[in-house]
Simulated assay, not measured.
Amino acid sequence: MRPPTSYRVHAEVWAGGESTVTAGNQTIPVDSTWAADEPAGTPGPAELLAAAFAACLMKNLERSSALLSFRYEHADIDVRARRQDIPPRFVEIEYELHLVTDEDERRVDLVHRNLRQFGTVYNTLAAVCDVHGSVVIVPTPAYPPAP
């Protein structure tokens, strides 16, 4: 059995809430202000978690595409994360994956099962909150959408 894979990130915060997270060779600004009246315009921890979930789906789509010889031209994912204040935690992650493909519905369902079964971030979040979503098939000639 292989040992677990390790990941490292580095984060910094300055007084007043200006923060960055460095992952890989990318530095991402992060909103860590407290009780701000207006959103700072940079992602906060909740958006970063939702982004990690979306990235997990995208990475697993590529994995499934290679392993299952699944053809697609493009995918986009909308993620909605809901949290509660007391106790503070996420209660629901909902997603809609739009998949531009000429594959039939049975093959799309197979890929969707793979996304749910083999996604590390997906499974971690599903263990602690309700995670659900759908895949919308977009026929290949319909993409890109008309301006």
Rank of each mutant, 00 (worst) to 15 (best):
R80Y: 03
V79F: 02
L97G: 09
I93F: 03
S69R: 10
D78P: 01
D104F: 06
D76M: 13
E92R: 12
L99P: 08
Y95V: 02
D104E: 11
P87L: 04
D102M: 08
L97N: 09
D85F: 03
D85T: 06
H98W: 06
A66I: 11
D85Y: 02
A81G: 05
E92Y: 03
P88W: 10
T101R: 07
P87Q: 14
R83G: 00
E105H: 07
R80L: 04
D78L: 04
D102C: 02
H74V: 09
V79P: 09
L99W: 07
D78Q: 12
R83A: 00
V79Y: 00
H74N: 12
E103A: 13
E73H: 13
D85I: 00
I86N: 04
E103Y: 13
D76G: 10
R83N: 00
F90D: 01
D76E: 15
E94W: 08
R82H: 13
T101D: 02
P87I: 00
H74W: 15
I86E: 07
S69K: 13
R71C: 07
R71Y: 13
Q84E: 08
E103Q: 10
R80A: 08
V79T: 09
V100C: 07
A81W: 00
S69A: 07
P88I: 02
E103V: 07
E105T: 15
A75V: 12
D78C: 01
E96Q: 09
P88H: 11
R82G: 04
R82M: 08
D102P: 06
D104V: 10
D78H: 06
R82N: 06
Y95T: 15
I77R: 13
E105Q: 09
F90T: 00
L67D: 15
S69V: 02
I93C: 05
L68F: 06
D78T: 11
R83I: 00
R106K: 14
L99D: 00
D76Y: 10
P87K: 06
E105D: 14
E96D: 11
L67R: 15
Y95K: 10
F70S: 15
